[in-house]
Nucleic acid binder design. Sequence first.
DNA 1: TAAGGATGCGAGCTATCACTCACATTAGCA
DNA 2: TGCTAATGTGAGTGATAGCTCGCATCCTTA
Lengths: 204, 204
Amino acid sequence: MSARPRTTTRKKPTQARSQQTVDALLGATARVLKKDGYDRMSTNKVALAAGVSIGSLYQYFPSKEALVATLMERHVDEMDALFAQEAVRVADMPLAQAVRAIVLRTIEAHQIDPVLHRVFEQVPRIGRLQKFDEVQERARVLVFLYLSASKEKLRPKSLEVAADLVASTIEMVSHGAVLRHPERLRDGVLVDETVDLILRYLKA
Amino acid sequence: MSARPRTTTRKKPTQARSQQTVDALLGATARVLKKDGYDRMSTNKVALAAGVSIGSLYQYFPSKEALVATLMERHVDEMDALFAQEAVRVADMPLAQAVRAIVLRTIEAHQIDPVLHRVFEQVPRIGRLQKFDEVQERARVLVFLYLSASKEKLRPKSLEVAADLVASTIEMVSHGAVLRHPERLRDGVLVDETVDLILRYLKA
DNA sequence: TAAGGATGCGAGCTATCACTCACATTAGCA
DNA sequence: TGCTAATGTGAGTGATAGCTCGCATCCTTA
């Protein structure tokens, strides 16, 4: 009864001009996704928007989910790269500087493609699409590691809870600012307030 | 070309045993939604799960969206009621008590049906379904009003920004705690930390 | 320039979707 | 008890979804 939509594995995308096709498909996926959202997006629409036949789409992506997941992974990798990079830079900075640097980087990361980011949040957490949540998990770990390095200077007893609170707060502020109040990023007020919030909480 | 799925207005649900049908449908909607998510939920599945014919479903709900929106509005009203009630209780409490009371109430509100709440977050913001975001907007307003009443005692210059930060933080903590770390709610540690975070930020 | 693999195509398949409608059943009131 | 409005039914409709497959075209290599 209705076998799972099994799909054979697809060609590796990479050889000459086929990469163009794949890029066009991913670009179109992003556009359709942003316009229609996940459940109104269809693979036929994507192929049409990409100027590519539906057959070619399925040559490289075995399913709608795989198509969106690939795009999501690209997005997530971009964000992760920024975080990882900043984590290194920040490692031996004093707390106040470090917090500010991380807040700024997180905002930057959210500015990569805020609308697409928002769409991903509303995608069903199925199969590979679950990976979206892992960005925040990794960010939490980085914050935890940073805090652990200077735990004797910090007030909160539980670093797990503190790291969670701090990482989630930064994520929440960045997300909200970029999507709902971009004007608050012009002057530095929101950033200052956020840094303040976090420092007052952390410092002994 | 493909007229919008116009649907005639439906019977008012209320008269005798028909209310049972409506309740069964909304209950089934919640179950299917939680199991499958919005885009894999179908009206046929809901009718089946409710033990009601598909015809009856459309007698009371003109569309899939209306079905989900009705359920969402019920959920949102429940949460709003808790907030509004607490806002009154808290109005002339001192800051520390008030913050703690609000945090506790927000957690309580998120415990109404956390999984359903999560599903609503991932529903496309279309038509009546946009109303989901308004809960937080109303919560922000309540916090802003509370803070305005004692603004001379507070450190942050911008009450808009502060109220936003505070309301969003409380929402984020409650949401995360209920879904990802329910064990942290056993002892009061997370609540204490959150109250601390907010008070240190607000107090001069 | 011939051959063959890589790439591209799109009509069309099956399943499922949201939704309708002609009809059956029930319930309350005369 | 009989009549009528309210309620319930589910086979069926057209649309569209995800996805396949046989074939055309391009590109590389020899």
